[in-house]
């Protein structure tokens, strides 16, 4: 630990030469605050204002409407299926990519990221082209009476596609930075591969993993474009929350639309709080690491 007095001194010096003039600071902060207020805070506030426009009673009624409840259930179910699937994939992909060297690795990373650059509309379309009645596998599926698009499996598939890179994206850089030395040491000491993974790798990546799952989950519940193409919009059956918002909105039922939207906004906020919490934990770790 350096002498506290010295440190204060240092801070004082650096403050005077290594930052902007007070007015410039004020301008930059004001710009950031105003920009974010115009683009983020106001839309968010608007959602809640509209949702509560007719009081808390109407708000609650909108959320307990049977169709809204089914939409919420469907959304939770879809996320509960899609997120674990992508979680397992993310861990497997980053294990292979980060802990080993093999040809075509960069290409593989690109492929993992591919869904990100695909328009959600196209993401939905590809499954219709594959599983729709006019699609490649459509006639075969129909002969077995299997319904993929315009039913739960199609919605799950589209959601998995859209959230595909999230967990892997968080894990790969972290695991690459960490290298394989720790695990190799564990193996040398007689641990099995699985044990090395569980006791060495997993604790090392847990934060990033959790973070990836949070993002993946938020995106899975909020996806609109891709799901809209494969859902079929059957009321009380294949409507997820974002689609239900659109339906209510199109029925001029603005209070109910924004009420359901506010649930999604709350979900987004919970995600952000969870994320901030993670960062805060990390922030501490970083601070310790530096001293």
């Amino acid at each position: 630990m350096p002498d506290p007095d010295l440190q204060r001194d240092r801070v004082y010096v650096s403050d005077s030469v290594v930052t902007e003039a007070p007015w410039a600071r004020a301008v930059i902060i004001a710009f950031a605050a105003i920009f974010l207020a115009l683009f983020l805070l106001l839309p968010l506030g608007l959602i809640f204002r509209e949702a509560l426009a007719k009081g808390i009673g109407a708000y609650w009624e909108a959320l307990t409407d049977p169709d809204a409840v089914t939409a919420i259930q469907l959304t939770l179910l879809v996320a509960a299926i899609a997120v674990p699937l992508n979680l397992v994939f993310g861990v497997a992909a980053s294990w292979a990519i980060a802990k080993f060297d093999f040809p075509g690795k960069s290409f593989l990373i690109t492929l993992v990221d591919l869904p990100f650059s695909v328009s959600p509309v196209v993401a939905g379309l590809v499954y219709v082209l594959l599983f729709g009645a006019q699609g490649l596998l459509g006639p075969w599926l129909q002969s077995w009476n299997i319904q993929i698009v315009f039913a739960l499996p199609g919605i799950v598939l589209a959601t998995v596609f859209v959230t595909f890179p999230f967990v892997a994206r968080e894990l790969i850089p972290l695991m690459q930075e960490q290298g394989a030395a720790d695990e190799e040491a564990a193996l040398t000491l007689g641990a099995s591969g699985l044990r090395a993974f569980l006791t060495v790798t997993l604790p090392n990546i847990r934060w990033a993993l959790l973070y990836g799952v949070l993002l993946c989950n938020a995106r899975a519940m909020g996806e609109f474009g891709a799901v809209s193409v494969v859902s079929g919009h059957i009321r009380g059956l294949t409507n997820t929350m974002p689609l239900h918002v659109e339906i209510l909105y199109n029925e001029y039922n603005f209070v109910a639309a924004f009420a359901v939207a506010s649930l999604l906004a709350i979900l987004a906020l919970v995600t952000l709080i969870g994320k901030t919490f993670l960062e805060w934990r990390y922030g501490e770790a970083i601070a310790h690491g530096r001293r």
């Binding site: 690109t110 990221d113 990100f116 930075e177 990836g212 990390y282 922030g283």
Partner: peptide, 21 residues
Amino acid sequence: DFFGLKLRGLALPAPMLRGEA
């Protein structure tokens, strides 16, 4: 790397890395 670079950016992997290491 085509997309690989941006992997490092999106979240906060950079501080994460050092913190853990």
